[in-house]
Amino acid sequence: MIQTIAFYLFAVLVIASAVMVIMARNPVHSVLWLILAFFNAAGLMVLVGAEFIAMLLVVVYVGAVAVLFLFVVMMLDIDFAELRAGFVRNFPLGIAIALVLLAELVLGIGAYQAGNLDLGTPAGDAAPMLGESNIENLGALLYGKYLFLFETAGIILLVAMVGAIVLTHRPPKTQRGHQHIGKQNARRPEDATVMKQPEVGKGVEL
């Protein structure tokens, strides 16, 4: 009962906020609706028992990616009239993509329902460890059977990161205005200040 209520609550919220992402007039509102959609998708994943993926979804997408989205959108000055002008022109393309996706869904689910699709049960290394939490299951799978694929994914991400840094890094042209943090940290109060206790009425020699 409670699961059913929670499922419909999350599902309705995901769809409603996904619709609001494209309907909202203000792009910042769009991003906030998107965040709500991510969050409810995480709720759905908790319901199917994939709590680790759900938490990662929130940490990675909501906590990091969406914040950057929000930033870019907040800083940009977007002209909506211009954006909306392209709507009619791109409408047929959008409908075509939507139809293709719908057809894929119908075919896939139809074939599965008709029983022509045998997903099989994982065996050997890939067999689920019953009674273990899904962190352990996922870890055993990623670091066991799919170790090389997983490492490859890691290396691709590393290359992407290095690439992004190389592309955006601009070496300083001049030394002006650059701070030397080591010099600043090495500076002690004795180097910068002098302690004087002048007599009243005498003043200090500088």
């Binding site: 965040i35 709590e51 680790f52 938490m55 990662l56 929130v58 940490v59 909501v62 906590g63 990091a64 914040v67 929000l70 930033f71 907040m74 939490s133 899904n134 962190i135």
Partner: peptide, 19 residues
């Protein structure tokens, strides 16, 4: 099971109130 990850997830949300 994922208590610590839950805390990490929730504390990453706290930036939204400020932003």
């Amino acid at each position: 099971n994922v208590g610590l990850l839950y805390i990490l997830a929730i504390s990453s949300l706290s930036v939204y109130g400020v932003v």
